[in-house]
């Protein structure tokens, strides 16, 4: 009798232990990004059904074998659980735009000042990749604008290298007049289209 009880208790304990160890429960929490923006995630079962959409700060869901359900987490729990992952976040990427004088690979005076900001942003990163994409307005032909857009990108790359940054971490390409910031008719001069976009990450 006593032995039977002991066995039953042991079995019960085993069942609890086993389930405790095998219960797969995944946790998902939406947080604001580095700009404070919040989008959404939809959490579904592995077969894509039973989805729940989270789209507010610290909205949370948990998923297990039985499906996906809403849950709550405190900011304190988030810090305890995810502190080390959050601390390992890379410096967020940044985009800059520099403008050029007409038919020229020289920056406008405002953009010469802005260049300092670009350089400072790259220089503070422990490791960096920079993409410089040159553009023109639609004032000339493609066969003229394609090389001009690349020369603009190469000029900015050279300015960064002259300040001590590494050539092979900076990539320069030209897109001619194909991606205007401001759409215009062909042949139109547009200062906002004479630019390089600098993508720093």
């Amino acid at each position: 009798m006593a032995a039977g009880q002991l066995l039953a208790r042991t079995l019960a304990a085993l069942v609890i232990l086993t389930c405790g160890a095998c219960a797969q429960r995944d946790l998902f929490v939406v947080v604001p990004d580095s700009d404070g923006h919040i989008g959404s995630i939809t959490v579904s079962k592995p077969d894509g059904t039973g989805g729940r959409t989270l789209n507010t700060a610290y909205a949370a869901a948990s998923a297990s074998e039985s499906g996906v359900e809403d849950t709550e987490v405190s900011q304190q729990e988030v810090e305890t659980t995810f502190g080390q992952a959050i601390a390992a976040r890379p410096v967020p990427p940044r985009k800059f735009v520099l403008y050029f004088l007409s038919d020229s690979e020289n920056l406008t005076p405002d953009s010469i000042a802005k260049f300092e900001e670009v350089f400072a942003d790259i220089a503070r990163r422990p490791v960096y990749e920079v993409e410089v994409v040159g553009h023109t307005d639609r004032a000339a032909e493609d066969r003229y604008n394609d090389p001009l857009s690349l020369q603009r990108a190469e000029r900015v790359r050279q300015m960064l290298v002259d300040r001590g940054l590494e050539w092979d971490h900076i990539f320069a390409t030209g897109r001619g007049e194909r991606d205007p910031a401001i759409p215009t008719d062909d042949g139109v001069h547009e200062p906002l289209n004479r630019r390089v976009e600098v993508d720093v990450r």
């Binding site: 923006h37 919040i38 989008g39 959404s40 995630i41 939809t42 995810f82 959050i86």
Partner: peptide, 9 residues
């Protein structure tokens, strides 16, 4: 998860 422009954990 399907992701639309956000940060999450």
């Amino acid at each position: 998860l399907a992701v639309r422009g956000t940060a999450f954990l």
